[in-house]
Write a protein that binds this DNA or RNA. Structure first.
Length: 474
RNA sequence: GGCGCUAUCGUCUAGCGGCUAGGACGGAGCCCUCUCAAGGCUUAAACACGGGUUCGAUUCCCGUUAGCGCUACCA
């Protein structure tokens, strides 16, 4: 099968997670069939221009690992890939339609259109459809503002097959004479999408469900042009927890937001892939490579899916656990730098990552949940102090620190032996020393294994912190 | 309002005529344990409603209801 898919966002300033999923599905489908994945920028609305939006979009896609083969900056024979740079192509095509009587100039003013609507009209009344070609040409050359509308048949219906929804049919009587070319000379989405998908040889149009109702118009255009139509697949929407269309108001929707919050690209990609698709068995953790191998349009669901942060968190945790310390390291270093903690060796940090990997949900946690790996405790957890630092504790710890100072090898096993021996001497449980020592060394009530933590921190820090705690906590 | 799409635990979902309706997240409990996690085990929790078709419907058909989408010279 010859496959070319595309992701065709309008440059709004950021990549929406729903857009990420649409792009991902189109990408997975193309890659799986050794096809081509195209990025096309749909910027035909001049009033909605956002500076730098395309760059941000590309940046987010690249971060996520959804790499396009053709698109802005990767010009192929089908370019340009930015619609505002393709105006002549649209003009040439729409002229053809007008000449063939499949579209017509409409001179109705915005005021007239508004009046029509105010009077209860739900569709354009086709007022300009009957203007003769000659008159239309005359008025156009006289400079009268106009748009070009496509003629929709009076009756009948259009049926088409959707790869995820099956057969869909819509009566022509419910479809408006769609504007194809705006008065500013820019095409509307409907014209541009059809012309571009055809001229770019797109084989499968994979897009959001919001486009389903206008697909008949698009198919009619393919017929008007005498082109073979691509296959269509309309994806279910991503929803807010209250089931409304996923929006900014109810949380983060930009891919950049999740990136900034410390989610791994693998986790976000895995998660959005599973919003509307599953492999049919019980596996859930997938890499991009596995998704490419296993994805299938047939298994894409039809119902909208709520974007559930809790599950994303779990998935991120799973992916962090799977990631090696060395892969995680470059993700953590910039975060440490922000805190001014940038003097640690890679080796030390990888040990910290090894201990923390199973206890974090986002990468920020490697920094914020365990400051004790980067600086001496500034305070001590009050609850733990009240519970674990009794009057007799000072004596135990004082003895323990002596032993720690004389250890030949300061590793987890030796520290543990030293602590348990001390506990035995005082005839108390090891817990009577473990908890106070943890408090002294980290200032926190919980964290990784105390003995391993001690090994990673090293004798110097551990001894220093315990001595300080002995003064502070007595 | 019109048109369209959709409908299994709270959430993501499996199921493609016969199942004790399965899994995952989250919740509860237990185990492990130096704490927190991780992990293991157990548990509560769903077929929107009403008609058909059928020996038999979660599954097929038709309604109803609900949700969502579209209804721009926005995409």
């Amino acid at each position: 099968m010859f496959v070319r898919t595309r992701f065709a966002p309008s440059p709004t300033g950021y990549l929406h997670v729903g857009g990420l999923r649409t792009a991902l599905y189109a990408y997975l489908f193309a890659k799986q069939h050794q096809g081509t994945f195209i990025l096309r920028i749909e910027d035909t609305d001049q009033s909605r221009k956002v500076e730098g939006a395309t760059e941000k979009l590309i940046d987010a896609l690249e971060w996520a690992g959804v790499e396009f083969d053709e698109g802005p900056g990767k010009e192929g024979v089908y370019g340009p890939y930015i619609q505002s740079q393709r105006l002549p192509i649209y003009h040439e095509h729409v002229k053809q339609l007008v000449d063939q009587g499949k579209a017509y100039h409409c001179f109705c003013t915005p005021e007239r259109l508004e009046r029509l609507k105010a009077e209860g009209g739900t569709m354009y009344d086709r007022h300009c459809r009957n203007i003769s070609m000659d008159e239309a040409r005359r008025r156009v050359s006289a400079g009268e503002p106009n748009v070009i509308r496509m003629k929709i048949p009076d009756d009948g219906e259009l049926q088409f097959h959707d790869e995820v929804r099956g057969d869909v049919s819509i009566a022509f009587s419910t479809i408006d004479d769609q504007v194809l070319l705006k008065s500013d000379g820019f095409p509307t989405y409907h014209l541009a999408v059809v012309v571009d998908d055809h001229t770019m040889a797109v084989s499968h149009v994979i897009r959001g469900e919001e486009w389903l109702p206008s697909t008949p118009k698009h198919i009619l255009l393919y017929q008007y042009f005498g082109w073979e139509k691509p296959k269509f697949a309309h994806l279910p929407l991503l929803l807010n927890p209250d089931k409304s269309k996923l929006s900014k108001r109810q949380g983060d929707v930009a891919v950049e937001d999740y990136r900034a919050k410390g989610y791994l690209k693998d986790a976000l990609v895995n998660f959005v892939a599973f919003l509307g698709w599953n492999p049919g068995d019980e596996r859930e953790i997938f890499s991009m490579e596995e998704l490419v191998k296993e994805f299938s349009i047939e298994r894409v669901g039809k119902a909208g899916a709520v974007f559930n942060i809790e599950k994303l968190n779990w998935m991120n945790q799973q992916h962090i656990k799977l990631q090696s310390e060395s892969k995680l390291l470059p993700l953590i270093k910039p975060l440490l730098k922000l805190k001014g903690w940038d003097s640690f060796s890679d080796e030390y940090l990888q040990q910290v990552i090894g201990l923390m990997k199973e206890r974090v949900v986002v990468t920020d946690d490697f920094v914020t949940s365990c400051p004790y790996f980067y600086e001496d405790p500034l305070s001590y957890d009050e609850t733990s102090r009240a519970k674990n630092w009794k009057p007799e504790t000072t004596g135990y710890i004082a003895k323990l620190i002596e032993r720690l100072q004389t250890l030949v090898l300061f590793d987890a096993a030796s520290v543990e032996t030293a602590l348990r021996t001390t506990a035995d001497e005082f005839q108390v449980g090891a817990g009577k020393l473990i908890h106070p020592m943890r408090l002294a060394v980290s200032g926190a009530a919980n964290g990784p294994s105390l003995f391993h933590m001690a090994e990673v921190l090293g004798r110097e820090r551990v001894v220093r912190r315990i001595q300080k705690a002995l003064e502070m906590l007595r």
